[in-house]
Amino acid sequence: MIQQDHLQIFDLTLNVWAPLFVGNGSSYTKKEYMYNTRNGKVSFLDEQKFFSFLVEHDLVDKYGQFMLSEQSNLWAFLTKDCGISDAELKTLTRYQIEVGDALDAEHSLKEIHAFQRDAQGHAYIPGSSIKGALRTAWLLSAVLADRSTGHSLAQNRRATFPEEKYVNQLHLRTLKDESIASDAVNSIFRGIQVSDSAPIPDAQMVLVGKFDALVNGSFAKGSNRGIPMCRECAASGTKVRFKLTLDQSVLKGRITKESLLEAIQQFDTYYEQTYSRHFTPPSGAVNLPQQPHLILGGGSGFFAKSLAYPYLGEEEGLRWTAEQMKQMFHNHKHERDAENGISPHTMKYARFRGRLYPYGYCGVSIL
């Protein structure tokens, strides 16, 4: 730790135990990337260089025909139909990552959901993603410490957890009736800053498939071969580094390194006792380290991002969540969730090289 007056600056390391997906909202269609079946890697083109190459080699019309055809393997088209060497293609590539078993060129390629990348094309994790996960863990511990009773949430899908009750502690701005304003000015989380991560090397990025497992360890109908898309993820075993700054002129000891680590431990315990214990791991699932962890990113699921269960209590939280699931996903058979004891009734898994990992499990160290 570095102490600078009221600022405490820590090194926060995210230890990725299961594929971690932090998307940038974009995706690549089957015809927008190259899957080289010889080296098992997928490459993403530098569009400007690629189209200049097509013009220089009089391939624009041929490429247009490819885009309108049923053929979907861009690498096969460029190497076999156009006679472009792998060495030439490499000069047109922004980056490439390992495919594992996420793609099958013999049958059908898939849409790829892209990871967050900076202006230079380096994969990274925004600090806001980590701050959000820490916020959820801290709020869960605050809710569990709240001994008041009679909590309730509306049954419509717009109902939100009243986090301002727990975070608006600063009293810096009040309304005309002298009540505390429910805005970021009064949020205690003003005192926490997390930097964007250091770049993640492409050698530590992989493609993974997505599977929905039911409570008995089987896969939801129609998903035994995975959802027809895959994700660009930070691989299991990756370490991602951030700077965590606690401004104690704001926090005044109410949030510390120790309290954050305790909140992570409490989140881990609550998640296991209330949610994951209901699920039998599917065949091929890995055994993750038995250490406190956060769950974040795409695929981490409703439970890792919602505080309905701790706020309402396990029984009422189950009923409320089942109702929300039923309203939002009409064809996913959530009508019996409350009767079956858990909602949502699926857990999201990533598959890489035949092994299944629950998405986004990450250990955290703060030094």
Rank of each mutant, 00 (worst) to 15 (best):
D5W: 00
L20W: 11
F21L: 12
S26W: 09
Y28T: 06
S52L: 13
E56F: 08
E56W: 05
H57A: 09
V60E: 09
Y63Q: 03
F66Y: 09
L68W: 03
K80A: 06
I97T: 03
V99F: 07
D104S: 15
L109A: 08
H122Q: 12
Y124I: 14
I125C: 03
S128Y: 13
R135N: 03
R135I: 01
A137Q: 01
S141V: 06
S141T: 14
L144R: 14
N168A: 14
I188N: 00
F189H: 06
F189K: 08
R190L: 09
A198P: 10
V208I: 13
K210S: 10
A213G: 12
G222Y: 03
S223M: 11
C233K: 13
S236C: 11
S236I: 01
R241Y: 12
F242E: 00
K252W: 02
G253I: 08
T256S: 14
E258F: 03
E272D: 10
H278I: 07
H278V: 07
T280D: 01
G297D: 03
G301I: 10
Y311G: 02
G313D: 00
E314H: 14
L318C: 02
K333H: 13
H334S: 12
R336V: 02
I342M: 04
M347A: 11
C362N: 09
C362F: 12
